[in-house]
């Protein structure tokens, strides 16, 4: 048979594949430089000139971002993005992302600003620049009533569901005792589903998300077991986009004082916004 042809074909395929990867690596770099804005105008100028602001929209993370009954994005962070576009006087383009894509989408240039309940952490600050916080959230361990957890130590021997690329993924494993098993999902909807269907004993999520899943599944008797930490979330921009960052600083300052941010927060979370620290 054509054994030799097949062998040659396989060898050529792998060589070509590896060459392609190398080429893509280089061309991505070249492309990244090619699309860089000219020195005269920064990202902010481009947004104003094109009259279009592209913002990440994560729609599987209540109450920050969800799809409403007409399948349109809604939620506190979506509303925040709308307010920002309105204050800039430009049109808003929502770039739908999953949780783990929030930062990659920003870095890849698909969005100009990430406004998707990104909590401010050291790790994230190494790759993106954070604006001052415009909201706060608590990470809790939530689970059905029958799961016996009262503190971090009780997680031993239990399966704890976590969503990748979230604050809970960063804050729960460090406090977990040996013997606690962390189970990772790609979006909060899957984590919630795993908790409701009993595939995990409990799950780490924002207190809002826990309330939302409890309200929608009364039979599951979801309750908050304990609070892991409270965090502040903010908009993020690409490293080097200081013009956009400075605008966001001013924007947060003004909307904190005129109460707009507090109104958005109250409307979607049904909780009053705490005093946001200055950054």
């Amino acid at each position: 048979m054509k054994r030799r042809e097949m062998l040659i074909g396989a060898a050529v395929t792998s060589a070509a594949g590896i060459a392609t990867i190398a080429a893509v690596t280089q061309s991505t770099q070249a492309l990244a430089q090619a699309v860089a804005p000219p020195a005269s105008g920064g990202t902010l100028d481009r947004i104003i000139k094109e009259k279009k602001l592209r913002v990440t929209a994560e729609v599987t993370s209540p109450p920050f971002g969800i799809l409403d009954r007409n399948n349109q994005p809604d939620g506190s962070e979506i509303e925040t993005a709308r307010q920002l576009a309105k204050d800039l006087g430009v049109e808003l383009e929502l770039v739908q992302v999953t949780g783990p894509q929030r930062i990659p989408a920003l870095l890849a240039g698909r969005a100009d600003i990430a406004i998707s309940s990104l909590s401010i952490t050291f790790d994230r600050a190494k790759t993106v620049m954070f604006a001052p916080p415009h909201g706060a959230l608590s990470i809790v361990i939530a689970g059905p009533k029958k799961t016996q957890i009262r503190g971090a130590a009780d997680m031993a021997g239990k399966k704890i569901g976590l969503t990748r690329a979230t604050l809970e993924e960063a804050s729960v494993p460090p406090i977990a005792p040996p013997g606690a098993q962390m189970v990772f999902f790609d979006d909060i909807a899957a984590t919630m589903q795993a908790m409701v269907s009993g595939q995990v004993d409990a799950a780490g999520m924002s207190a809002f998300a826990a309330k939302s899943v409890g309200d929608r599944n009364p039979k599951a008797e979801v309750e908050n077991k304990f609070t892991v930490r409270t965090a502040y979330y903010a908009a993020a921009v690409r490293p080097g986009d200081f013009d956009v960052l400075q605008f966001l600083r001013t924007w947060v300052f003004l909307n904190k004082h005129n109460g707009v941010l507090a109104n958005i927060y109250k409307k979607y979370t049904e909780v009053a916004l705490v005093d946001l620290p200055v950054m």
Partner: peptide, 10 residues
């Protein structure tokens, strides 16, 4: 996915 989400080196 887990590694890229914790290191941001997607």
């Amino acid at each position: 996915n887990t590694l890229q989400s914790t290191t941001f080196r997607a």
